[in-house]
């Protein structure tokens, strides 16, 4: 396959890994760049099709309006939930120092 300028690069993989908070070794970045590029190339075959008349699919199931009544359901027991957390304090989840305001 000829080199495709739109092909996934090492920099793309590093960027996505950083966004996903994944710490990858150099050899892993190389492996994933190659493997992900193959997957994307495969998916790119769709763009060879004429899909002008095909409506966009938001969901694989031909369903809409799956709704529930606005009725209260039982909640979880707080002590039980917090017991599963790495740390808690004052009935709340305790988390490490936050480094910036919410996005």
């Amino acid at each position: 396959m000829a080199a495709d300028p739109a092909r996934l690069t090492r920099a793309d993989v590093e960027h996505v890994a950083r966004l996903a908070r994944l710490s990858l070794r150099d050899d892993e970045i190389a492996t994933f760049t190659e493997q992900l590029a193959v997957i994307l190339d495969h998916a790119a075959q769709v763009s060879a099709l004429d899909i002008a008349d095909v409506p966009a699919t938001a969901h694989p199931l031909p369903l809409s309006n799956v709704l529930r009544a606005d009725e209260v359901r039982p909640c979880l027991d707080r002590a039980e939930v917090l017991a599963s957390a790495p740390a808690s304090e004052d009935g709340r989840f305790r988390v490490p120092r936050i480094l910036g305001e919410a996005p």
């Binding site: 529930r68 009725e71 209260v72 359901r73 039982p74 909640c75 979880l76 707080r78 939930v81 917090l82 004052d90 009935g91 709340r92 989840f93």
Partner: peptide, 16 residues
């Protein structure tokens, strides 16, 4: 989800 939408409840009591 069916958790109550309340302001001012005890922390983490409306969770599922």
């Amino acid at each position: 989800c069916g958790c109550p939408n309340n302001f001012g409840s005890e922390p983490n009591t409306n969770i599922c």
